[in-house]
Design a protein around this nucleic acid. Sequence first.
DNA 1: GATATCATGTACCAATCGGTACACTGCGTC
DNA 2: GACGCAGTGTACCGATTGGTACATGATATC
Lengths: 182, 182
Amino acid sequence: MRTLHERADVIPLIAEVFREFGFEGTSLSRITEKTALGKGSLYHFFPGGKEEMAGAVLAHVDAWFEREVFAPLRDDPPDVAIARMWRAVDDYFRSGRRVCLVGAFALDETRDRFAAVIAGYFTRWIAALRDALVRRGWEARAANDSAEEAVLGIQGALVLARAMRDDAVFGRALARLRARLA
Amino acid sequence: MRTLHERADVIPLIAEVFREFGFEGTSLSRITEKTALGKGSLYHFFPGGKEEMAGAVLAHVDAWFEREVFAPLRDDPPDVAIARMWRAVDDYFRSGRRVCLVGAFALDETRDRFAAVIAGYFTRWIAALRDALVRRGWEARAANDSAEEAVLGIQGALVLARAMRDDAVFGRALARLRARLA
DNA sequence: GATATCATGTACCAATCGGTACACTGCGTC
DNA sequence: GACGCAGTGTACCGATTGGTACATGATATC
């Protein structure tokens, strides 16, 4: 049996707030509003305050991608894993309507707070995709180039889709990138 | 004869602050620190306060790209203008060490404050590049696709370069994108 | 049914936020 | 040399910030 809330339940809600307002733009009052949790509960779950909340959210995102994308890329047959990656990416980012928190944090001074997690997220993604391409028979250099291009293209597509309020641009970008890895 | 400072002189300094800390993370005290200008002067130049400062900075960025990139793409021979664009982009973003303010603002709720400028910046960039490709003989659909891909690739490369603290990834991305437009 | 722990709401804190008011200085104009 | 104004510094405002303290409520264990 469990009480009304636990740490794990509230992390996705806090993630939404950070995604919408960024690290600096996210205030405890906004988190309180979104989660319907008072400061008492929040500091009970996250004694380190706002920084620990953001860290937990980043870890949550990282774990999701590790499980749904990176690990399959490493362990499953390349074709299967890559197809799964494109599906996961389209789902996770809601076809361009949802922002990548890691990418967003990377752009301002927030990066320095979470440098290791942020760098690790992209490094592992690219490495896993590159290795999958190599296992599929690609030459190492080409594989690394294309892996980099795919990951960076997703980030760029998210920026553009949000800037222009046009999800279609995200769909087109994903289709192009997918075709290039085929 | 002029006094020590005028509006035009401080805009680039304020731009650096917004680039580093984002809109929410930029406080008047940080702007004061960077510009060595008191609130008196700042509100003399920008009566609308922080929002007007950010607006002026965005307009300044927009004007730079309009002059150095978009207009040449529209008016000059396509090959010349596109070569110039790649040079301008590499210079402006300091080979990946400088962030795109418009892209950064697009990612959080700051976008809604400056929706028109932000959307316009990317829309005009893509349109100008697409038309240059068409004038060069490309088919309309392919031209639009490639223009979108180039602009989005630049944004993604900036995110990745900052996230991984690795300028080389920006250089490689630019080379790939350039080759694809050749 | 007493106890310990998890979870919660409220009151409060100093510091900082964006913004305003205003007195002042230095300069060019007449 | 009086005037006007662009530019400046300082003091101040209420509101909000992230964070702390603590008393209370609920729950599971024994």
